[in-house]
Design a protein around this nucleic acid. Structure first.
Length: 441
DNA sequence: TCTGGGGTCCTAGGACCC
DNA sequence: TCTGGGGTCCTAGGACCC
């Protein structure tokens, strides 16, 4: 124990990131156990891209985030099981995983970061063996929810991500747990990590780092000065990144706050291209209703409403071309969260930006300039405790509601909806719809 | 009619994340 | 033929003020 304290003495207390392995695919497998060691992929909205793939699919050469049609030959040749996104299912299972963590570690030590990731605060465990602690967490989550996870433990969030990457790369040898709690293990890990895999370094920066600065690994990057990063790597964000790589926390755990969104958007690709203004209006009215629901859920009102459409352009010698975005915005006379008050100006914008003869493949509505909704002041007196619960529900709703196909309340949303997206291969919503519940044979 | 320097507020756009 | 959706943070630059 004395040795343990000695080697850790220059490091702050530990954090962890827990990350569900191929989350969407794991959710699908839960109800199709015969697929456990088989390749599986899940597609994005509109069945456009591959957004989740299992290790088996990866080995076959299915590219992540690649277009579905390009991977189709491999998928068909090897019989890869393919699913459309089923957000009701994923949202529910995500909640179960997060709730398990909250029960184990206490609500205040869990920061939900995305549908399949959470940061954990391990402050209370500094006398324990972190590897065993993390292994235990991994086993309990799997036992209670059926979802397999990987865990990275380190003194900063950026280093946790590095650790987690290494755990996922070598699941068997690491048992999906990597702990970086000494200078030596941290240095080794940084040397083994290509710079483009560092959290906060995207494609543009990676290219710049390699070509102009001969920075190839996370280790090379950590040797750069904060001042240099401040200048060349996105300002203060870059400076924080350097600190964190060197074991100095610069991104603290987000505690408890009810995070109120500063902007709310609802945008979708159409199932097929559209050239008729009525269809676009129906779509925009539907997206506006959905955005307004999100707005009301966080008790905000919007002061600015923008609408955009994306045109479809002819492909150029086999090269994929994004369409042109045409957008316009309105500053509302009074901040509002009322669906009807938002739909009217939204449709006026459509009249303004629609060009006859063009073909469109996407539209969207963005609400910004959000302020607290004055009409619901009474809610200020809701106890904080209930607010936290609401935050939880919001997270689930945001996933759950994404694909909801319910009856629309406003006539302008239309009833035919030729433009609505494809979900041809969606699995049943086992855990959230009674009539689709899993049947034990 | 001449015009510096410093401050704030806003928007657009770029980069990143899952 | 067919390439997701929803966010965040930061910076630069313009408009305006004293």
């Amino acid at each position: 124990m004395a040795i343990l304290k000695e080697i850790r003495k220059n490091l702050p207390y530990m954090k962890a990131i827990i990350d569900c392995n191929s989350f969407y695919c794991s959710c699908e497998r839960l109800f199709r156990p015969e697929l456990d060691d088989k390749p599986v992929v899940v597609l994005s909205n509109n069945d456009g891209c591959i957004v989740s793939r299992t290790d088996e699919a990866k080995l076959l050469g299915v590219a992540m985030a690649g277009p579905y049609f390009m991977a189709k030959p491999i998928i068909e040749k090897f019989g890869v099981s393919t699913f459309s996104s089923n957000y009701n299912l994923y949202g529910d299972l995500s909640w179960r995983v997060m709730e398990t963590l909250r029960v184990m570690l206490g609500e205040e030590n869990v920061e939900v970061y995305s549908v399949d990731e959470a940061f954990l605060d391990l402050k209370g465990f500094d006398n324990k063996n972190y590897f065993e602690v993390a292994l235990h967490i991994r086993e309990v989550v799997e036992l209670w929810t059926g979802i397999k996870v990987s865990i990275g433990v380190a003194p900063t969030k950026v280093l946790c991500k590095v650790a987690n990457h290494l755990a996922k790369k070598n699941k068997i040898a690491t048992q999906c747990v990597v702990v970086l709690d000494t200078k030596a293990t941290i240095n080794d890990a940084l040397q083994a990590t290509p710079v483009n895999e560092v959290w906060g370094v995207g494609r543009q920066y990676a290219e710049k780092l390699k070509e102009m600065n001969a920075v190839y690994t996370a280790y090379d990057l950590c040797k750069k000065s904060e001042a240099w990063a401040q200048k060349n790597l996105g300002g203060v964000i870059g400076a924080r990144l350097i600190k964190e790589l060197n074991g100095e926390p610069a991104n603290e755990m987000a505690k408890e706050q009810l995070t109120v969104k500063k902007m709310i958007a609802c945008t979708r690709m159409f199932g097929q291209t559209v050239n008729n203004i009525e269809d676009i209006k129906q779509a925009v009215a539907t997206y506006t209703s959905r955005a307004a629901e999100k707005l009301r859920r966080q008790k905000s009102a919007a002061t600015t409403l923008s609408v955009f459409v994306l045109t479809k352009e002819p492909t150029n010698a086999g090269h994929f071309r994004h369409g042109n975005t045409i957008s316009h915005y309105t500053v509302l006379p009074i901040a509002t969260c009322a669906t009807n008050e938002l739909i009217k100006p939204a449709l006026e914008i459509v009249d303004k930006i629609f060009v006859k003869g063009k073909r469109y493949k996407k539209a969207g509505v963005i609400l910004s300039g959000l302020v607290p909704d004055q009409t619901i002041q009474a809610n200020l007196f809701v106890p904080e405790k209930n607010n936290n619960k609401r935050k939880l529900m919001d997270m689930i709703d945001n996933v759950n509601f994404a694909m909801r196909n319910d009856i629309l309340k406003f006539a302008s949303s239309g009833t035919k909806r030729d433009w609505k997206m494809r979900v041809e291969m969606r699995s049943p919503r086992y855990t959230t719809r009674w009539n689709e519940m899993y049947v034990v044979k």
